[in-house]
């Protein structure tokens, strides 16, 4: 009997390791900026090259910074939700238009709607890299002091918002 049970025991030992491994998802790499002031930047806005969007604009109230591009399908997928969020007017969304073409970006905002208070035009991608983004879309939650509170890589949707962002925002307003 005994030796025939050994493989079963070996597997029963291994499975908890795999479960725990699942919980430490490597995609949830914390941003090195969490708790620190948002990286400094100053970008021309998409609509008007003479105006700028800079890190100073993020100070004063809780806001979102969303890194997007017209070339990114995930951004297309989350766009509808960003529009909903913008219509609720609970939180201002700043966009960083990453590695994109100005003409195409403006056309996109015209076609699908513009959820952003302002979008910075980050053509060479430097600012996105400073933020530690390694893909688009990525969304950062910034508190009133202009510090990064949370980073979410991938397309936003209602359930991510309810589970991950809403509790943090509720916590900050108390």
């Amino acid at each position: 009997m005994s030796r025939y049970v050994l493989p079963l025991i070996a597997v029963l030992v291994m499975i908890p390791i795999l479960i725990l491994g699942l919980q430490s998802d490597p995609s949830k790499l914390p941003s090195q900026y969490i708790g620190k002031p948002a990286p400094e930047f100053s970008l021309q806005t998409l609509q008007d090259p003479s105006r700028t969007l800079s890190s100073a604009d993020l100070v004063g109230r809780v806001s979102l910074v969303n890194i997007w591009g017209t070339w990114c399908v995930g951004c297309r997928a989350e766009h509808g939700f960003l529009m909903t969020l913008a219509e609720q007017k609970k939180i201002p969304i700043y966009g960083i238009n990453w590695r994109d073409n100005r003409q195409e970006a403006l056309q996109w905002l015209e076609q699908y709607g513009d959820p952003y208070v302002a979008s910075g035009f980050d053509q060479d991608g430097r600012v996105g890299i400073d933020w530690g983004a390694y893909g688009a879309p990525e969304t950062f939650l910034i508190n009133a002091e202009g510090r990064v509170v949370y980073r979410f890589p991938g397309p936003l949707n209602a359930s991510v918002w309810e589970q991950q962002f809403a509790p943090l925002i509720a916590g900050m307003s108390q």
């Binding site: 009997m1 025939y4 049970v5 493989p7 499975i15 699942l22 490597p26």
Partner: peptide
């Protein structure tokens, strides 16, 4: 990456492997 998929496949893996090994311990 998607954790839901991870849990699904892990559950499936566990059912298949544990089931097979219980049968093994019993019948082999």
């Amino acid at each position: 990456t998607d954790p839901t998929r991870g849990y699904f496949i892990l559950t499936f893996l566990a059912i298949v492997v544990i089931g097979a090994l219980i049968l093994y311990a019993w019948r082999a």
